[in-house]
Amino acid sequence: MIHFEHLTKTFGRYRAVDDLSLDVKPQQAVALWGPNGAGKTTVIKCLLGLLRYEGRITLNGFDARTQGRQARSLLGYVPQELAFYDDMKTLESGYYFAQLKRADMARVPLVMAQVGLADHGAKPVRALSGGMKQRLALALALLADPPVLVLDEPTSSLDTAARSQFLNLLCQVKAEGKTIIFTSHRIEEVEALADEVLIMDTGKVIGRCPAYRLAEEAGLRTQVKLIIAPDKLDAALHVLKADGFTVRRNGVGVLVDVLPREKAQPIHSLSRADIHITDFEVE
């Protein structure tokens, strides 16, 4: 469906993407995962024809560079920074982009309903909440019923509730058979949506794996902050170090470095040592 062959993008001497090759199969969901500055968004922009690049990108055989219009007509794009025409009404935005995409006008209200914006059509876009805007972006991407969805950090700007709601929506869309390529730095998003993950750092692909193995593959750590009574702090540090945790003192508590799925382990260790934990936070 989507082929990247030796995609390289340089800004001056800086290589934002360095020799990326990728083959996204129909109905597959591929995540580009990595920290900020890894080059994920640059890959998306190259795919959209917003940037010049070296190498080759094709969608269903259409060259993204020389046949940009045909290539882009196969995909719906949800950008990271939502930028709509704020003074347009929500529904009118739908009709405007439907005209640009040469989509069927009758689909506009249907898609709006699908993303749960049916009751907000008369509001100007600027009056929508962040979650609604994100759903509008998805609706606009789906207007022409394209086979491919391109999502750039789809939930980064949402709060927890809106995030899970939106992820559900994306999973539905995926279930309808869309091919998805998206960027993310959130492991739960990748785990929920992606089939395969490319792990990127400073422009390079440093690993690829099935989505469920991402955490291990990436050696991903979470920090747990444990609040402990001041007279027990030294003892707690000692116990945790003895149990093999990477730990350091932080104000009224300690910070423990753990794998994401082992966040309860330091609590167990301290309980065993009879050290009382007053509170904890996960960062």
């Binding site: 922009k45 959209l48 024809g49 917003l50 940009g68 219009r69 045909q70 882009r72 007509s73 794009y77 950008p79 920074e81 930028a83 709509f84 025409y85 982009f97 640009l100 995409k101 040469r102 022409a144």
Partner: peptide
């Protein structure tokens, strides 16, 4: 500046 240009150019238009 409003970032709408990138979004517009991402549509199937030239």
């Amino acid at each position: 500046e409003r970032k709408t240009m990138a979004y517009l150019l991402a549509q199937p238009i030239t």
